[in-house]
Simulated scan of single mutants.
Amino acid sequence: MIVLPVPMVVALLLGFLFLRATLFTETPRLLAALLLACACQSVTVSVVQYYGVSELRLLQPITASLIPALAWVAFLEGAIRSQPKSRDLLHFLIPIVMACAVLAIPVTIDALLAVIFVGYGVAILVMLHRHSDDLANTRLASGHFPAVIWRIIAIALIASAISDICITLALSYGYRGAPGLILSVFSSVALLMIGFLCLSPDIVTEPVEGDGDEYDAPSNAPGLHRQENAPHKTNEDVPVHAIMEQLEALVIGKKLYLDPDLTLARLARRLGFPLKQVSTAINLVTGENVSRYINKLRIEHACRELETGQNVTTAMLASGFNTKSNFNREFLRITGSTPTKWQSHSTVTQQTSISQ
């Protein structure tokens, strides 16, 4: 009977997911690369720890250091901005730095690897907090779910670093059999979690050509000029009234909220204001983030559709949602009921009103 170690099973599963993602889905290249990196790392861990291929032991921390760098760049270009930046390539120098440490100062390998994983994980968490879960290029129909996915990926990176620290401590206390167990449990679970989350349709987005990052004001922005070293604007600097006036005219007047592919980047571009200012204005006036503001309008539209007798699927598609999971989640959050129950209650209420 052939018995495979847990990391090898994880590697095979991630490899299958990678092939499925590249052959049958439109997974962005960076997310696909992150999935492949996780699969390769699982293979490396398996052959080193369980098959005794000690020649690859020095390669293990080098390949591992690529994973957090890929996760960070994929996060930036998939959630924060759509246009790649040349400076992002600098993050891919991390494996070279790790290789230098492996060859010149091997005693620093564990500490450096932990710093890299924790550093990138914390950076993602800080960026999410800074943006209040308003991600530029994720579909607003997904609500807060894309931010939740990226937050879990960040935590998985940190957890992977904790596993390295546990291995170091175990070896220092003489527990020679601990590394294999720790890698099987912590690292394998972390890598598998990252791999699965990479395929979530809520973070798989199609970039919009010409969208800028959160500080890029479009060239036609009224009274705004992009400056490379411009100071961060406070809430008092945000033209809230002008933004909300144009927002209502565009989103409500022209029913832009019914666009299922609407993102914060597209919305800001249509308004002619920077992303951060649009997000801040909506939050100041409504007390909600952008996705909740848009999805509330969509659910109100869906309720009107349901009241006319449309079935749930038709109402969902007509209101700017692509998936029932997102629609049901937002419908429950806003109305406190499922679409089917809400429609049944609405029908009974209408019949009672007519009979009276």
Rank of each mutant, 00 (worst) to 15 (best):
E248K: 11
L157R: 01
G253M: 01
G177S: 14
N289W: 06
S187I: 03
E248R: 11
R87P: 00
P95E: 00
V10G: 00
G320R: 01
P146Y: 08
L128I: 13
A217Q: 04
P68E: 05
S184C: 13
A315P: 09
G177K: 11
S82Y: 08
L30C: 08
A64E: 04
T44S: 07
T286I: 02
I158N: 06
I94R: 01
P339H: 05
I203H: 06
S86H: 08
P146L: 06
C303P: 01
H241A: 14
L284Y: 03
V115L: 14
L181Y: 11
E307W: 02
K324F: 09
T314E: 12
R20S: 11
Q227N: 09
A39D: 03
H301A: 09
A64C: 05
S65D: 00
E248A: 07
M1Q: 10
V290T: 15
E245Y: 10
W342R: 07
A156F: 05
A161L: 06
R226E: 02
T347Q: 13
K85Q: 13
E55F: 12
G336P: 09
R269K: 10
Y175F: 15
V97T: 11
H144E: 14
Q246R: 15
G253L: 04
P5C: 12
I182V: 10
T352A: 13
G52F: 06
A159F: 12
T108A: 13
Q83K: 15
V348T: 14
S132A: 14
K85H: 12
S325L: 13
P61I: 04
P95W: 04
L128S: 01
T340F: 04
V10E: 00
G119E: 03
R176T: 10
C40Q: 05
E228I: 12
G212Q: 07
T323M: 06
L224T: 01
S42D: 06
D213P: 01
V47Q: 04
L284D: 00
H91A: 11
L17H: 02
D133L: 12
L199C: 15
L13R: 08
L183S: 10
Y175L: 14
Q83M: 05
D133K: 13
D259F: 08
Y215K: 02
D216Q: 09
E307Y: 08
A114T: 00
Y173N: 09
I194Q: 05
G15S: 08
A161N: 04
I80R: 06
L89A: 15
D261F: 09
L191Q: 08
F16N: 00
N326W: 03
L264I: 14
T347R: 14
L192G: 01
E245S: 15
Y173I: 11
V47I: 15
V240A: 05
E206H: 12
A101K: 01
